[in-house]
Structures are given as C-alpha cells and as structure tokens.
Write a protein that binds this DNA or RNA. Structure first.
Length: 538
DNA sequence: TGGTGTTTACTGCTTG
DNA sequence: CAAGCAGTAAACACCA
C-alpha cells in the first residue's frame, strides 16, 4: 500500500500540526523529482493491472483490525478508536499547476488524468489542448502498513510486499498487448486500485538524499537512524527477508517497512543480527509487566531478551537503561521484595494506588489526564500562575499552599472534586523533583476575633472565608512542630512571630531586644506556654 | 562480589 | 533556539 517508508525519521502525518504538515509537504514537493513521479505512477499502474490479470494479489498482512490491535497494545485507545485515528486507506493528492497547489481526491485525480490523456491524444489535439499544463502529482502518504506482532512470542518486523514490488522482483516480463489493452481499458473505466499500492518512498528517499548532506556523525554512527529521538538500527533497505507473523508462521516479505505503532519506521537490513525494536524501554517494560503482572528486574530482562533478540542478555548497557527507566518512571511501582533472590517486584503503578509522585507521565496517560482535567483547566492555570509567582518560596510549599487555597475555596462551597483536584495537584507537582504527598485538609473555622485579625491577610491572598493558613498547611499540631523545631524549651517559646497568630496559647511575652541579648538584626520575643484556661481568663 | 536501585550528566533528536 | 524526551553511561549505595 502507500506509505512514506523512507526510514529517515518520518513523523506520522496525523501527529503533525497543520502548518508543520504543510511545510513538510512543501519541502517534499520542492525536493521531489516530479517527472519521475509521473513516470512511476504510470509504470506502477500498468504493472499492477498486469499483475491483477495474471496472478492473485499478494496477501496484505496488515489490515485495519490488525493495525488497530497492534496500536492498542500500548495505547489506551481501543482498537476501533485506534483504527479511526489511523485511517489505513485514506489518500489525498496534491495537484500542482504552476504555482497553484490544490488538494483533491482520487476520483478528482482520475478526472484530471483523463483530461491529460485526451490532451495527449493526436485526435484530440487542438489549440485549447495546448493550454493544458502537465499536472504534477504528489501523493501525500497517510497510509502506514506494518505489523508489529509484539504480542507474539517472538518479535521481528513484519512488513508487506506491495504488488508493485512483487511485480518487480518476480518478473520483468512486460505485459502482453492484450494486457496492455486491458490496463488501458481499466484506466478508462476508472479502476484506480493500482494507485493504492503506489509507493512514494523511492522519490522521498531520493529527495532526502538530495536535500540532506550526511554529517560527520551520521557517517560515523554506523548508519543509525533515529526516529523521534530514538535509534532504530540501520538504514532502510529493500531486502527480502523472512520473519514471523502473529500466528508464528513465516512469510516472505520485503523490508520496506511502514510504520504502524506511532509510525515508527524501524529497519530490517542486510546487516546480520537482530534489529532494534521500535519501542522505548518504557513500553517494553510496560508490556512485560502487563503480561506477567509483577516481575523482578531480572525477569524483566529475561522477558525482553526472549521477545526481542536485539537485547542480548549478556549486554549490560540496555539493562542499565531498563533499571534507569524503572527508577525514574513513576509509571512503574516498586513492590515488595522478591521472594527469591535479590531485588524487588515491579509492577505497573495504578493511577489511584500509585504512592509515588508522577514526575514523568507518558503520552497516553498525559492525554487522558488532560482530558479528565478539562473541566478544571482554569483552576489549573490559576494554580500554575500562583506557583510561578512564588519563585521565592520553596516549590513544594508554594504548590501546597496554592493547592490548599484552591481546595479550601471549593470546600467552602461544598463543590470540591477531590479526584480532579488531586490530579491537578499531581500534575503540578509532577514538575517538582521532590517526594511530595498531596493532602486535603479541611480548613478549621476560627473565632470571630481571630477571623478579624486574619481577615485582612486572607483578603490580600484572595481568601474569602475565615481560615487560618497555619491551620491546614500542616496536619501536625503546632505544639509538636514548635517542639520538634527546638523552639519550645522548658515551657518557653522563642520566636519572632506572634504566637497568637500561630494559634498557640501564650501569656505576655518578654521582649528580647538586640540590646539585651542578641545581635542587631534579631528581635525575638519570649513567650511562656500557658493552658487554654489561662488564655481565656487573660 | 554481583545484582539491584537511585541519581546525575550528557548526547541527540523532535517540537513549539 | 530552548525545552522536553529517550537513550546511554557512570557513580554510588545497599544488600544477600
């Protein structure tokens, strides 16, 4: 089928922003050899129709369903959703007429093609036909076709052979005159099925070669290609090799690799040895854990090396990367100690039960999380702004204060959505590289006097309820905090704050001035702890 | 001592 | 061009 399998790091069209997509198309258009494309379109069309005549079409390994299943392996989307997200047979055509470019459909292209054919015919040549400009066609390839049977026991790339390639590789016998007649009849009858198997890859590759000069690193990096920042083995070649599909059966296939999962072109090559799978370590680990539940690190090693021969068990480099991913990715949770041997059991962290902060959220989770947070977008933005404005404060404290403020406001209105707020908080705190825990504390109602004393302060911070920040910023009692901080000693509290605002029961302070005790910049006051009854009587 | 787990730093790539 | 991501390397600590 059709797909840009240049193997040079193409990005799925559907993931590109529109302007970038257009820019990419423009670049391809500028670099392509239009004449070669038009010639190849005709040749492929003829070959395909000839092949249809003499032999059954090759089996197409990838189907909508198969592709959806593959995508669904690592995607929260259902297979059907994945298919809907990844239309397999959608084809758009860019008609270029001079400086004008127009996107059109296949049927429209057929119509244009008929016009060109008629103009080229001697019987229909006229002064008006000379006005017909040769239209140059660029196919925008949005069809990916590759099976990645990661759910099989053994993984290797599975790719398909477009009929055009089969024709090229199997026979060079030109179509007979009857076949030629048939194919032109098909042209007139509008059979454009050949177009679905037209490959643009050679042109794109040629264009890339024209437009890009390999750098020193490219030359000396063993022809490694990187897609989305990942290294996917060696360069794209046109080998025919044997590999295995999901059923374990083997089939001949071309190494023309089209991407399916995230459009990751990986490579089959002439080079000996297995190819690096187009999956990140996070995905590999996740799949292992989803399949097996809980695994030790060594079991994860084993699973990966069993399913992906690229990863040799005796190679410690990728194992280090696996451990690194397990450690830094909150998507994975370290469980209890392994019953046998060293290490712990690792598992996929549940969203609700994950005890660790999410410093990194993978794309899928991030997307779903953002969808869940859609209702609270404004609130999240407010909290983010608050945090950004508190650069002078500790990150955790600022985040906690903002979240507490936010949750307190909603608590006052009994509309707290703890789930979404928790998610919001986790989203915010995910950028803080500290172990933090989000707690929601019900603000304490204070007396009217205390309310008045703190009201002005609260209003300046946008609070509209009688709450003291100190009441809910720390769930531990104030006395305990003061004692643990060494501020309380033998019934006395040394502080530069008014203990009343801290909610502590104190009698009249003895003011320690710089003259009688400390340095010039210190002004501590000496409070004596008292019982609540003493405070009330005072 | 080797396996495991954490952390940091760096590189290369993509993306906005 | 900066930020973010993925991969890699390395250092270090802990533990059986």
């Amino acid at each position: 089928m059709i797909g840009p399998s240049s193997g040079t790091g193409s990005v799925p069209e559907r993931e590109l922003p529109d302007n970038q997509s257009r820019a990419s198309k423009k670049r391809i258009f500028e670099d392509l050899d239009i004449e070669s494309i038009c010639e190849e379109v005709q040749n492929v069309r003829k070959r395909y129709q000839y092949q249809e005549e003499i032999e059954a079409p090759m089996e197409v390994v990838s189907s909508h369903q198969g592709m959806g299943d593959t995508v669904a392996l690592f995607s929260p989307l259902s297979a059907q959703e994945a298919v809907e997200e990844c239309p397999v047979a959608r084809l758009e055509v860019l008609l270029v007429d001079g400086t004008n470019c127009t996107w059109t459909t296949v049927s429209e292209l057929e119509h244009q093609q008929n016009i060109v054919d008629m103009a080229a015919s001697p019987s229909t040549s006229s002064s008006s036909s000379s006005e017909h400009k040769q239209e140059q066609v660029i196919h925008e390839v949005q069809v990916e076709e590759t099976s990645y049977p990661i759910n099989s026991d053994y993984w290797e790339p599975v790719v398909t052979v477009p009929p055009s390639n089969i024709q090229q590789s199997k026979t060079d016998v030109p179509p007979s005159s009857s076949h030629q007649q048939q194919q032109f009849d098909d042209q007139e009858t509008g059979n454009l099925s050949w177009l679905l198997d037209f490959k643009l890859d050679p042109f794109i590759e040629a264009a890339d070669e024209k437009s890009t000069v390999p750098s020193y690193k490219d030359v000396h990096s063993g022809n490694k290609t990187r897609v989305n920042g990942r290294s996917y083995g060696y360069t794209y070649v046109n080998d025919v090799k044997r590999s295995y599909n999901e059923n374990g059966s083997s089939h001949l296939e071309s190494s023309h690799s089209y991407s399916s999962l995230d459009n990751r072109n990986f490579v089959s090559s002439r080079c000996n040895g297995p190819k690096k799978p187009p999956f990140t370590y996070t995905e590999l680990i996740e799949h292992a854990l989803r399949e097996k539940g809980e695994l030790t690190v060594s079991a994860i090693y084993q699973w990966i090396s069993e399913h992906f021969p690229y990863y040799k068990s005796n190679d410690d480099r990728w194992k280090n990367s696996v451990r690194h991913n397990l450690s830094i990715n909150p998507h994975f949770r370290k469980g209890s100690k392994a019953p046998h041997g060293a290490g712990h059991l690792w598992a996929i962290a549940n969203r609700s039960g994950d005890p660790r902060p999410r410093q990194i959220i993978n794309n899928f989770n991030a997307n779903s999380t953002l969808k869940q947070m859609n209702k609270n977008t404004v609130e999240v933005e407010n909290v983010r702004k608050n945090i950004s404005q508190m650069n002078s404060i500790d990150e955790v404290e600022a985040a906690t204060a903002s979240i507490t403020q936010q949750s307190s406001e909603e608590e006052a209105e009994n509309i707290v959505n703890s789930v979404t707020l928790e998610h919001c908080a986790e989203e915010i705190l995910s950028g803080i590289k500290k172990e933090v825990e989000v707690q929601y504390l019900v603000p304490m109602m204070v007396s009217s006097n205390e309310h008045e004393s703190t009201q002005s302060n609260q209003q300046t911070q946008g609070l509209h309820y009688p709450v003291k920040e100190s009441d809910f910023l720390n769930p531990v009692s104030k006395e305990v905090v003061a004692e643990e901080c060494g501020l309380i000693s033998e019934g006395y509290l040394v502080t530069d704050l008014n203990p009343t605002t801290l909610g502590l029961n104190m009698v009249e302070p003895e003011i320690i001035t710089p003259e009688n005790l400390f340095g010039e910049e210190l002004s501590f006051q000496f409070y004596e702890l008292s019982s609540p009854s003493q405070t009330q009587s005072a």
